[in-house]
């Protein structure tokens, strides 16, 4: 299995397409960082417009590395599934269309092992992608913008997380994002197993995410009640929960706390169930599949 994983990783990381995702992310984050470096204060002012009338706010402190990273993640993580699909959607179908799948499947390794190795290799890719995002959006942002308290804007108010209470939240948020992205990878894998070309699964994965996100966000009661609880997209943004700090009755934040931990755990569990179900389905289908390509 370790051998297989090494081989799959080798294949993924020798493919030029893989690095496309890293380049896109770097370009995207640098653009945001540059924008915030130039106009960050104005942007913060715009965001906190209504508050500016009652409060004196030190905007230069608000635009700090943690805040920049938070902003980046909010914009970026929604789009990372596309980059995940780009690689995960290709792992089986790409080989089918290239013709190497028949060589692979005629080797003395079980099909289950092949699929699991491919999924694990995808996991390493996703991990590397998130690590890359973390390094650029967090480490570089902190280096450029400095460290300070993180102000998180929600529709029902602002909350401030002290600088020394932030880093661990990013750690867990990235961990959560990893699980969320692995659901996307599992969808892509399943579609990839069923397809003979790599464009199909990639487009289909993105399509599924878009449709599910739309249904998740539509405020139509029947969808809200009967469909939404079962959609994975409902749980994908759970990483934000780590930045919702707990507070006392009179609004004083409690350091090191999370406002709604059960919600996050539930989201995580739901995503895990998705992963297990989707990967099992992929294994099942791949085991039964006649390789005709």
């Amino acid at each position: 299995m370790w051998n297989l994983l090494q081989i799959e990783l080798f294949k993924i990381f020798k493919k030029p397409r893989t690095y496309l995702a890293f380049a896109i992310i770097a370009a995207f984050i640098f653009l945001i960082q540059l924008g915030l470096l130039v106009n960050g204060k104005d942007w913060m002012k715009f965001m906190l417009g209504s508050l500016d009338e009652t409060m004196n706010i030190d905007y230069s402190k608000l635009v700090n590395g943690y805040a920049v990273c938070f902003f980046v993640l909010n914009l970026l993580l929604v789009h990372v599934p596309i980059l995940v699909a780009l690689v995960a959607g290709d792992v089986v179908s790409g080989e089918a269309s290239m013709g190497t799948l028949r060589l692979l499947a005629a080797k003395p390794v079980s099909r289950t092992q092949i699929i699991l190795a491919k999924y694990l290799a995808t996991a390493v890719y996703v991990f590397a992608l998130l690590l890359w995002i973390a390094v650029i959006s967090l480490v570089i942002s902190i280096a450029v913008f400095g460290e300070n308290d993180l102000v998180v804007a929600k529709t029902n108010g602002l909350q401030l997380i002290e600088a020394n209470d932030v880093l661990w939240r990013y750690f867990f948020a990235f961990g959560f994002a990893f699980i969320a992205m692995m659901v996307v990878a599992a969808i892509s894998l399943l579609l990839s197993v069923m397809s003979e070309n790599s464009i199909g699964p990639i487009v289909a994965t993105v399509g599924i995410i878009i449709v599910c996100t739309l249904i998740s966000e539509m405020e139509i009661p029947i969808y809200q009640k009967y469909i939404k609880p079962y959609l994975f997209t409902t749980y994908m943004l759970g990483w934000k929960g780590f930045f919702y700090i707990g507070s006392t009755e009179d609004g004083e934040t409690i350091k090191g706390s999370i406002q709604y931990l059960p919600g996050i755990i539930k989201s995580m569990a739901a995503l895990m169930v998705y992963i297990v179900a989707l990967v099992s389905a992929a294994v099942f289908i791949f085991r039964k599949k006649d390789i005709l390509s």
Binding site: I7, F10, K14, R102, P108, V109
Partner: peptide, 30 residues
């Protein structure tokens, strides 16, 4: 299958890898 070698129709291999890498991969898989 450990004792079987095959060329199945067109010899499709990993285009983006070198000849050596292709051979190494399938040796390992065997």
């Amino acid at each position: 299958l450990k004792q079987v070698g095959a060329v199945i129709e067109k010899p499709d291999l990993y285009k983006y890898l070198s000849a050596y890498d292709n051979l190494a991969i399938f040796a390992k898989m065997s």
